[in-house]
Amino acid sequence: MTDLPTETTRKLGLVIDLDTCVGCHACAISCKGWNTENYGAPLSDQAPYGDAPSGTFLNRIHSYEVLPEDGPAQTVHFPKSCLHCENAPCVTVCPTGASYKRAEDGIVLVNEDACIGCGLCAWACPYGAREMDAAEGVMKKCTLCVDRIYNENLPEEDRTPACVRTCPSGARHFGDLGDPESDVSQLVEKRGGFDLMPEQGTAPVNKYLPPRSRDSWNEESVLAPFLEPVAEDTRGFLSWLDRALDKLPGGSD
């Protein structure tokens, strides 16, 4: 049923650290790999070796430039996938009941056998988290690796979403955001985690951690006193050259 559960027992989701993400796209690659080989229809590619390759991805990494009023521009890499919203607009618009949000852990999933491929859920999602697979004609989205996190055939350290497991910079964290004592909730609390597009009223479960502030042009370096020039005057050949050039007409800078 496309009614949203009034409450979910747990709120499983991701916390993405925009400070430590290096924009390597490893999460997108491991996601594509796992979700092509396992649960549901594979994530197809169209003309992967052609002029305009295109394909289905459940996770995409944007890069933004933040230009402060003073100081250097900062590049922020921005991975974006389904945020498993508490008030998921993609679920309620589904005409067939293919889209649903699980009451036990809050994961938003698609029953591909019931999907007619109308695409309305992708229209309703403000984050671009749902993509219609061009080969299968069904809607694909992040499953939070539901086939990994509860999978007892995997070693315990692998029972986490593929993107989190693979991230080389530790920028992705997985856990229960409904439990205020969980590691992820503590991290959000400590670092000032925020929602994307809060004004859309979707109440996303996934949170983003802001980049920490960087050095500015004006800041005095603590090492500066130790790096003062040793010699103020030039001597020897360079000194002679300096004086000789000064004597030539045209002045100096």
Binding site: P53, R60, P68, L196
Partner: peptide, 20 residues
């Protein structure tokens, strides 16, 4: 959520060709 840091612009899209 990056607006407090300054002016924003998209520097690089996720992929080199258009997607769905």
């Amino acid at each position: 959520g990056l607006g407090d840091g300054g002016t924003l612009r998209s520097l690089a899209p996720p992929h080199s060709s258009p997607n769905y």
